[in-house]
Amino acid sequence: MNKFRKHDSDRLFAGALLSFALILVLFIFVIISVLIERSWKSITTFGFSFLTGQTWNPLRHMYGSLPFLYGTLISSLIGLVLATVVGGGTAILLTQFNHLRFVKLATFLLDVLATIPSVVYGLWGLFVLVPWLRNTGEPFLKATLGFVPLFSGQVWGVGLLAAGLILGIMMLPTIISVVRKLMDQVPQELQDGAIALGATRTEKVRMVVLPYARVGILGAVFLSFGRALGETIAVTMVIGNSPTISSSLFQPGDSLASVLVTQFLEASTHLYLSSLYEIGLVLLIVAVLFHSVSKFLVWRVSERARIA
């Protein structure tokens, strides 16, 4: 009797938990189906050319998402490079040189950094970073590296570079914390072994720690990249909102998320609105793709750690 009741309550409990999971499935189903349903007109009108079209011109009913895709990827890539170098360096500093007294404080401050909202970064970017880029940063880059097409052309302040810098700052806390976690997983015996063989700390990092954590770091990088792709408000405030494709990082651009902010509520014809929903669908696919890849990579590392 007692046993029977116990079994019963467990079933009820499991059922209750499962219902939570089903609600989640419902959410995702609704989100994806609404995006597909609303963008159907655009999908059937433009087909694949929606992704390759370079012109976004509501007046002529031409909707191509390539400039937004380009702006999204390039600005995220700039942010990623910066965040990987700076964040990776910081993570090494905090794990491998952890006798330093400020490690605890730095960890706390990085946690604080992670809580600052996107819109505040946008505000800071608009009034502090962009004027600095316009008056000092970009003219300097142009004077020193101007022969590279990346750093040529008119200086605006706002643009892909500004958006990339902001994204880089926003990615830092994630990259640092994931990389730190991965480096902590490197077996201590291996590290001690390297030191015992006479390696300097630098050599230990280069030959033991980094190779061990490589795949996981790649995962962290993809994870941050996926996040950056969907970052909206801060990017919208500094990217320049110009749907053009240009080789120079100084030039204004536009991203998938920011064109939604500036135009979604404003679309007054069916095809226009439908195309914006399709922009959302493209953004979803790109972001989810990178998110899944990163999760897979991080999972592989922890799996390996468990086996070892």
Partner: peptide, 16 residues
């Protein structure tokens, strides 16, 4: 370029 609420601008940056 044409006449419209949103056109394709040859040069410049956009403000909201």
């Amino acid at each position: 370029v044409g006449v419209g609420k949103a056109v394709s601008w040859p040069v410049g940056i956009g403000g909201k």
